[in-house]
Amino acid sequence: MREIKVAEISKAVFMLFLDANYDLGEDVLASLQAALQVEPSPTGRNVLEQLIVNAEIARDEQVPMCQDTGYAVVFAELGQDVRVVGGDFYAAVNEGVRQAYIDGFLRKSIVADPLNRVNTGDNTPAVIHVEIVPGDKIRLIVAPKGGGSENMSAVRMLKPADGAKGVMDFVVDTVSRAGSNPCPPVVVGVGIGGTMEKVALIAKKALLRKLGEPHPDSFYAGMERDLLEKINKLGIGPQGYGGRTTALAVHIETYPAHIASLPAAVNINCHASRHKERVL
């Protein structure tokens, strides 16, 4: 058994949340640059330019690119040959979040109770998804998630007869209704299959893929291309002012489904598509 101290986990989580909030991914930056070349709307191009300059300021000054520094979502792939020592794994992750949001001047956006709504003051607790995997390492992926785009997300339990067209209509309709709210250009995570909770989780996981990297299965890669084309025909454009850059990418993840079910989920992310990872 390889031992990993909880302090190491806290430190990694701390660094990853700073990095995810300060430093826009190179894949996103390249995608915004590419969109700037083809966006026909002058106001739309102005928005894309602002987002590119904003990323430079955030990186240079080490400040958050967006004031909504998000719900702290953490995916941990825990090697089954790892022994976590020195404390509680979940407490260690939350300690890293607490330090990042306090010492890193990130906004604290979490209320302790959904109805009584008193701020926890340190952006904890994180939403932590742990998966046990072979090996003796821990892979940590952090994905701070803004409220504006999360609020536009949806799950629908379709009928198997609805098929691929039913799923595509649902995805396009969800992005269409979201309009200007989730800070387009958006990144669209789509889950298909599994159960109600599983489909939402894989839609979120789809957002962790490198921007624009196609699904390994050519059928789903084709569906991603078709969806991106349909979404960009909606005309919503950057920030919703009209234009052809409504989404930067559509990523699909699938899971086996029950003979009676066709669950589908759409998790919308803002342009920043924040996520960073590290292997311990």
């Binding site: 400040v63 004031q67 909504d68």
Partner: peptide
């Protein structure tokens, strides 16, 4: 807007619009 906390020496933290 609900700005992020200001870093020392700054007037305000990051401050973009909310929905």
């Amino acid at each position: 807007v609900g700005p992020a906390p200001a870093k020392p020496g700054k007037v305000i933290g990051s401050a973009g619009p909310t929905t």
